[in-house]
């Protein structure tokens, strides 16, 4: 069996009485794009800090390609990291920061770096103090993607990027996978994870709730539908995919919809619908809906 890119064994972190991470056991096989999902405060960043050796586990251990995460000189030869909130030395320009990162890092493909600077439309001649959040994130992303490290650890890397740049990001992730790099992507943006990840782990309140493929995750995807109607109420009972039907006031109905919408739309066509809104629920809502409160401590 090959060595996993990342391995957590009974990984636990407590801050005083607060358990930020509770006996996490996780293997990320080499070559996968692995999504790490969870609401804010679920322990995603804590996990990453432990995997990077920036924080020490209270119990258990973390390994990068079989090397103890605490041995950073060796473990970090195999990874590149983009933090959630990128802070740069304000007096250095983007180009100087990329140079410093390349010279101190695990090896950089300079030609590919130039290409990435173009694709992400970064002006590297500006001092970092003048960069917006998105531009700071671009600097870190370019530095990470340009390395030939076999593992990329990305912690909510696209929160400041615009849709065009987000597309470039997804392309870069796919290219990294095609080169055989493993990508560990922490996020709470379901769409992004769906678009690029092979498998996902879901973390909630410091515990691993599930590890599943993206197809299984799609099953979680349900929309909230609210309709307003005139005259008779529609009969939605027994329609496949429609659940949790409830009244939302006078002549208003709310229900959830999973899968194909056609049967529900046919049922709605039978009555006079005056307004219809559909809302994709947040990941948090899916968690609460799907897992109830069993995962809370």
């Amino acid at each position: 069996m090959t060595v996993p890119a990342l391995r957590a064994v009974d990984l636990t972190k407590r801050y005083g009485h607060l358990t930020a991470l509770d006996t996490l056991n996780l293997d990320v096989p080499a070559g996968e794009v692995f999504g790490f999902l969870g609401p804010n405060g679920a322990g995603k960043s804590t996990t990453i800090r432990l995997l990077l050796g920036l924080a020490r586990p209270t119990a258990g251990r973390a390994e990068v390609f079989g090397v103890d995460a605490a041995d950073v000189a060796s473990a970090h030869q195999r990874l590149a990291y983009v933090p959630a909130d990128v802070a740069l030395w304000p007096q250095l320009t983007g180009a100087e920061i990329l140079h410093l990162q390349a010279r101190t890092g695990p090896g950089t493909d300079l030609a590919y770096r130039e290409e990435l600077v173009d694709r992400f439309a970064l002006d590297p001649s500006k001092p970092a103090r003048t960069y917006s959040t998105g531009n700071r994130q671009k600097v870190a992303l370019i530095a990470a993607f340009a390395t030939r490290a076999p593992l990329l650890v990305l912690d909510e890397p696209t929160s400041g990027l615009d849709p065009l740049m987000e597309r470039e990001f997804r392309t870069a992730v796919r290219q990294a996978r095609d080169r055989g790099q493993t990508v560990f992507l922490s996020s709470h943006q379901l769409a992004e994870v769906e678009a690029v990840c092979d498998r996902v782990a879901i973390l909630r309140a410091g515990r691993l709730v599930d590890v599943s493929t993206i197809e299984d995750l799609r099953g979680l995807h349900r929309s909230d539908v609210t309709i307003t109607y005139a005259g008779m109420a529609p009969d939605l009972s027994g329609i496949p995919g429609v659940e949790a039907i409830e009244s939302a006031g006078e002549r208003r109905l709310r229900f959830t919809l999973t899968g194909e919408p056609a049967p529900a739309l046919r049922a709605l066509a039978a009555v006079e619908v005056t307004a219809l809104t559909m809302r994709e629920p947040s990941l948090e809502e899916i968690f609460l809906d799907y897992y109830g409160t069993e995962a809370t401590r």
Binding site: L52, L54, H76, A87, W89, Q101
Partner: peptide, 19 residues
């Protein structure tokens, strides 16, 4: 530099804390 997270650029590199 550590508290304001600038140092993260270096602590995530193959550089020991002692160095």
């Amino acid at each position: 530099d550590e508290t304001d997270r600038r140092l993260t650029q270096l602590t995530s590199q193959p550089i020991t804390r002692i160095r």
